[in-house]
Design a protein around this nucleic acid. Sequence first.
DNA 1: GTAAAGTTTGACCATATGGTAAAATTTTGT
DNA 2: ACAAAATTTTACCATATGGTCAAACTTTAC
Lengths: 218, 218
Amino acid sequence: MTAQKSTPSAVSRSASTRKRTRIQQEKEQLILEAALDVFSRHGFRGSTIDQIAVQAGLSKPNVLYYFRTKEAIHRRLIDRLLDNWLEPLRGINEDGDPLSEIQSYIRRKLELARDYPRESRLFANEILQGAPHIQEELHDLRDLVERKSKIINDWIKAEKIANCDPKHLFFSIWATTQHYADFDAQIRVVLGPTEDGDDRFENAARFLDQLFVDGLRK
Amino acid sequence: MTAQKSTPSAVSRSASTRKRTRIQQEKEQLILEAALDVFSRHGFRGSTIDQIAVQAGLSKPNVLYYFRTKEAIHRRLIDRLLDNWLEPLRGINEDGDPLSEIQSYIRRKLELARDYPRESRLFANEILQGAPHIQEELHDLRDLVERKSKIINDWIKAEKIANCDPKHLFFSIWATTQHYADFDAQIRVVLGPTEDGDDRFENAARFLDQLFVDGLRK
DNA sequence: GTAAAGTTTGACCATATGGTAAAATTTTGT
DNA sequence: ACAAAATTTTACCATATGGTCAAACTTTAC
């Protein structure tokens, strides 16, 4: 082996503009998938690289070959997450029917909570700890909310929906939908075994639909 | 010093029925107060006994003199928490005016989120991790919710409020109110510096009042 | 004042954990 | 097939952390 330079590293390679190898692509995804599982269950501090490695079927140093640090894995997950997470909000269309737009926003957020609970919990963990890793990303969110709040305000001025504070409306939509993923452990106990997974979300959808539509109708 | 038996310990003393000394009372409260601060910010795994000790102005072994383990501190906090946390729910009175009862339940929960955000985050952290330490306590919650759901259902049958699933109603009330404590970091960024602490909660109260009252009125 | 009980501290220990170095192995391009 | 590059493993290291122990120090009861 050439000893002329330091150990080759997938990290520096992927960080640079050079293209990534097949193995790199596969293993990175494998690690991220495992890390999502572990981080979402135990939080950042509660997760160990070893747990992630075992879950991914790799050795610890092998994981660290693809990601320089534990934080690097976490950062990548959060980046990937926020893209999908904000998509429904971006989808709110000022030219659509106000109540339908809000209704379908709620439905899409609820579907995310149902289909991607790990992502929801990863996000919740991060915010709970004071969002130490995503201050920048939160500013993008703020700008997006600002824009969408203007749309809601226009609808209110046009007397198409009831008067309300748009930002608090968004907060309550986020809270109620994500609650089904984040507080799953509590919900399971309260609902008991009668309501299985699908029923749970159907009943939630029905309830939230009624709550917000009746609460906002002019 | 008598060497005939093991080191005296405040833990065994407080665990037994014997009365506790003045110093024990004071130091235990001091430690719990510090631990609430630390646990609510970093979660169980993310908190160290040393952090708690520093925050309390004690040495690590001194903390461990009053609580056998890190888990024991956590457990005591959670126990103390749940009592206050469920109080508003217990307060729902079947003989009161339905909408007023729900309205004041929401207001009380929101006040808890405003005045005891650390407790809210401690609880959120615990549930997010799958509620590993409070399965029993959750069963008490389930029974309480069961009883209160019956009251809501009676109100619905009497046509005093709109038809809805009582449990999902509770979920959405918990979600929206606790959100202001648990997702504080996000809310701060989205609202920006314009809305300071008190305004925030007043606006939230106004919004939630409207949402739930209009959403539930018959 | 004194002795027993209660409290505090400093020095430790075992283990867990994030991360590194270099050798060994596999893959890839030709 | 062969060399260069990429990947994986084995053996580590330094530090952090939960927890223990016995000695030193305070408080309390009489």
